[in-house]
Amino acid sequence: MKRVSTLFFLLCIFGASAQNFNKEIITENGLQFLVGQINLEGLRSQPYSNWFQNRYENYHPDETMVALFKEKLADYNIKLFLGTWCGDSKRESPKFIKILETADFPMEQLEIVALDYRKGHYKTSPTGEEKGLNILKVPTIIFFKDGQEVNRIVESPLETLEDDMAQIVFEKDYVPNYAY
């Protein structure tokens, strides 16, 4: 009995501290979207897989370009802010994930945060990951090195995602859309 109580207690502690991923909101008019921290399983689940999976599978990264920045990219932590309700996020996020996987990027260094769509909560997350990061448009992809923001891609790349990522990783003069 003592072992069962101890096991139950430990499960409660681990359950309470576990990250809550893929929180879904369904509005009164039936609109579904994810909010807060999400993972690839969330994007590959219904109804999000309807747009994510097809765009992911049909995108073919520029492997020559990816090979140029692959090694340096691993030095970065990346935060991807998106809206599962947003056309730009639906277009760019699957391509970005495919590029990261092509580059063998350590996915534990990627944090994906889905922002809200509702009035009064617009472009926020339930746990506030966007606070202080000046998220104006989605998707916003922020590249961090040694805990400091290096640069970001906002809404869409200036050239291609691969070109823009290379500019950022090699710390070239890169000014994103909607620079603040």
Rank of each mutant, 00 (worst) to 15 (best):
A74S: 14
I97Q: 04
F170Y: 13
F105K: 00
Q148T: 10
L158M: 12
E111I: 13
V138Q: 00
M65W: 05
D88I: 06
L100A: 04
K95C: 07
T124V: 08
F81S: 01
A103G: 09
D163Q: 11
K95V: 04
L133F: 09
V138Y: 02
M165A: 06
D173E: 14
G128P: 03
L80C: 14
G147S: 10
S156E: 13
H60V: 12
Y76G: 01
F170T: 11
T124W: 05
D146M: 11
E57R: 12
V154A: 06
P126Y: 04
L115Q: 01
S89P: 08
Y59I: 00
F96G: 00
N134P: 08
V154I: 14
F96C: 04
D88R: 06
F105E: 01
E63S: 14
K72Q: 15
F96I: 04
S93V: 15
M65I: 13
L82G: 06
Q148S: 12
V154T: 09
T140R: 01
E130R: 02
L133W: 04
F144Y: 14
A114M: 08
M65V: 13
L136K: 11
A114S: 15
I135Q: 01
P61K: 05
M65A: 15
I78C: 05
E130C: 11
T102N: 09
R152L: 06
A103N: 06
G128E: 09
E63A: 13
I99E: 02
G147Q: 05
K79P: 03
N54V: 15
L68V: 14
P157Q: 06
I78D: 02
P106T: 07
E155D: 11
L82F: 07
D116F: 03
L68F: 12
L161E: 02
F81N: 02
M107Q: 05
E63N: 13
P126F: 10
L158C: 09
L115N: 02
P61G: 08
E71P: 09
K131P: 07
W85V: 05
V113M: 04
T102R: 04
A166S: 10
Y56T: 05
E171G: 06
T124F: 06
F96Y: 08
R118P: 08
G120T: 06
I112N: 00
D164N: 07
L80G: 03
A67G: 07
L133N: 02
T160Y: 02
K79N: 11
K119P: 11
Y117K: 12
I141C: 02
S125C: 08
A166L: 11
R55D: 15
V150I: 13
L161M: 09
N54I: 14
K172A: 12
P139T: 03
E129Y: 07
H60P: 07
H60A: 15
Q167T: 10
M65S: 14
S125H: 03
E155H: 04
R55Q: 15
I142R: 00
E130G: 08
E159Y: 12
T64R: 14
F105R: 03
A67M: 11
E159M: 12
G83C: 09
I78T: 04
M165K: 02
D104M: 11
N134S: 13
E155I: 02
N134Q: 12
N58L: 12
A74Q: 15
Y56M: 04
N134W: 09
I112K: 00
H60Q: 14
T84P: 07
T140D: 06
K95I: 03
S156L: 10
E101P: 09
T160I: 06
M65L: 15
W85L: 08
F105N: 00
I135A: 02
K137P: 05
E162R: 01
H121P: 05
